[in-house]
Amino acid sequence: MRGSVVGTAVTLAAGALLTAAMTTATASPPPTAPAPSRTGASQPVLVDCLWQQTVRPDDFILACGDGNSRLTGLRWSEWGPDGATAEGVNMVNDCKPYCAAGTFRSYPVTVRLDGATSWKKHPEVQRYDRMSLTYPEDRPEGFKQVMTYPLWD
């Protein structure tokens, strides 16, 4: 009987702690950095592999087919009709000896978006059509210091 009372008390205490933790988490102030936005009616958007439009994303997949190149930790200093600029890291799989057994390596990078034009899928939305990556230090094997890519339409 005593074991049953102790077990019930432990269960009730755990439930109270969980409730307190959830209440505290939901009452917490919003983070200081703005979260990525899924809308962008008044400003250009970045269209991802899944045709989702975002503004100031934290991460962005460059190699949609296999995910072997992605941008992470993006910190945007500009975002507007004339372009967008961020600092972040390009995580690239070296694919040695082959991609499934490769190692992801990180390279600091400056990201520049420009060429805001109407998006074919939603002509009322302006989307960036070009991305340039500048590697201030090391860069992936075979990459130039500045790599420019067309973006999805």
Rank of each mutant, 00 (worst) to 15 (best):
G3V: 10
V6S: 10
G7W: 07
G7H: 08
T8A: 15
T11L: 15
A14E: 00
L17H: 05
M22L: 15
M22K: 08
T24A: 14
A27E: 09
P30R: 06
P31A: 04
T32M: 08
S37K: 08
G40M: 00
A41H: 08
D48Q: 03
D48G: 07
C49Y: 02
L50Q: 13
W51N: 15
P57A: 04
D58I: 08
I61F: 06
A63V: 10
G65N: 11
G65I: 00
S69T: 13
S69E: 14
R70C: 02
G73H: 07
L74S: 02
W76P: 05
S77M: 08
G83Q: 05
V92C: 01
D94W: 02
D94S: 04
C95I: 06
C95M: 06
C95Q: 09
K96G: 11
Y98V: 14
F104R: 09
T110N: 07
R112L: 15
A116R: 05
A116G: 01
A116L: 04
T117F: 10
W119D: 08
K120W: 10
V125R: 12
Q126F: 01
R127K: 11
R130Q: 11
Y135E: 04
P136S: 02
E141Y: 07
V146S: 10
V146F: 02
Y149I: 10
L151V: 09
L151T: 11
W152M: 11
